[in-house]
Every structure is written in structure tokens, then in C-alpha cells.
């Protein structure tokens, strides 16, 4: 996994609550067996009209939102299915940091598995950021994971945020979860013997 330390870039405001994973990537695109290439389908039905043309009203089609790295959204982002295709699609499109007042559990966890940083800010902070980004499309943000700080590059906002220390370390170092767990292989075998479930 690619380590995550600092990031700067354009932020896209997606002013919706309860954005579910079916909106992020509809099931019809989950038939592929690869991990990559899902960016083209990201937010499909919102991003494209029925005729396949880009929907000019959707934020990612705004001319000032080029190569966004941050996505700012309403609460309970990523609810619904466990599909990891959702973070894969966001990442493949270029996003590395998602900001919302709250996230659904499985999605939140899936982000960390893929080098995406989900940042939880207060409802008022997200609302203020959302307003700014809607008024100044193309405005840029920066985040420093080590310092747990996120700011707008024009200096208007500086926020600090919480992140679990273990997950933070894994992201900073780009650690592989399975490799970490296999360091405890002996404990797994012990458990299996103790519980009488040895294979």
C-alpha cells in the first residue's frame, strides 16, 4: 500500500447526506475481477445523463474541479454495501482524502485498507467548508496526517482531527495488514489448539 503522509489539491463539494455505495459505484460495475479501473464508473448515474453525456450540474463535471484529491460530503458517507469497489473507484479517480461529519463503519475501514484517508470533522466545520467550496469552486485544501491537521490553502480554515493511532501508523507507513497479523501466527495456532479447532 502507498504510504499517506501529506496531501494538497483541489477539493470537490458533494453536498448530500447518506451517500451510499450504490451511488459511489453501482453494482453493474462490480463484475470485473480487477482491483483497478473503477474510476470511470465513479458516481456513474449522478455524473452522466441517460444518454451517457456528462451531467453539467454534477460537481465533478464543473470546469474548475480538475483532478480533485479531496471530497467533502454530508454525514453517513459510504453507507450500504461492503463493496471495496467504492474506495477503489474513489482512489482510481484520484481522490485520496474524504471529509465528512460521519462515515459508515465498513466504508471507513475499507478506506484505510486502500491508502485513502477519511477525515471526520464536526457537522458545522463540514458545512462551512462545503459553503466555501461551493462559492469558490477549485479551491484547494491540504492535510498533514502526522500532525492531524487539515486546512484550506488560502488560510481561511485550519482544523485538527482525530484518527485512531494504529490506523494512522498503518497509513503513514503503508503497512500491509496481513503481514502484520502473520507476525502473530504462533498465537493463531495456539488459539486453534486451545479451542480444539485445529485444522
Amino acid at each position: 500500500m502507498e504510504p499517506f503522509t501529506k496531501l494538497s489539491g483541489v477539493a470537490a463539494p458533494l453536498d448530500r447526506v447518506n451517500v451510499d455505495t450504490d451511488q459511489i459505484i453501482p453494482a453493474v460495475h462490480l463484475k470485473r475481477i480487477e482491483r483497478t479501473g473503477y474510476g470511470q464508473f465513479l458516481f456513474g448515474p449522478l455524473r452522466f445523463n441517460a444518454d451517457g453525456e456528462p451531467n453539467p450540474d454534477f460537481i465533478l463535471n464543473h470546469p474548475s474541479i480538475q483532478n480533485p484529491k479531496f471530497l467533502v460530503a454530508g454525514r453517513n458517507f459510504g453507507c450500504g454495501s461492503s463493496r471495496e469497489h467504492a474506495p477503489w473507484a474513489l482512489e482510481d479517480y484520484g481522490f485520496r482524502c474524504i471529509i465528512a461529519p460521519s462515515f459508515a463503519d465498513i466504508f471507513y475501514n475499507n478506506c484505510f485498507q486502500n491508502g485513502l484517508l477519511p477525515v471526520v470533522l464536526l457537522e458545522e466545520q463540514v458545512a462551512a467548508l462545503m459553503d466555501k467550496l461551493k462559492q469558490q469552486p477549485g479551491a484547494t485544501l491540504s492535510v498533514d496526517l502526522e500532525a492531524q491537521r487539515l486546512w484550506s490553502d488560502d488560510g481561511e480554515f485550519v482544523f485538527s482531527f482525530e484518527v485512531d493511532p494504529f490506523r494512522k501508523r498503518c497509513l503513514l507507513d503503508g503497512l500491509d495488514d496481513i503481514g502484520l497479523t502473520l507476525l502473530h501466527e504462533d498465537k493463531i495456532s495456539d488459539y486453534e489448539r486451545r479451542m480444539g479447532v485445529a485444522g
Partner: peptide, 20 residues
């Protein structure tokens, strides 16, 4: 509980899951 694909791989390899 439902898990993502990275965790599916983790369970296949280790028969364990990391959970808070």
C-alpha cells in the same frame, strides 16, 4: 459481520480479523 475485500483476503490468509 460484513467485511471488505482486503479483509476477505486477510481472513483467507489468517482465519482472523482485525477489529476494534
Amino acid at each position: 459481520l460484513g467485511i471488505g475485500t482486503s479483509e476477505v483476503e486477510h481472513v483467507l490468509a489468517t482465519q482472523t480479523l482485525r477489529q476494534f
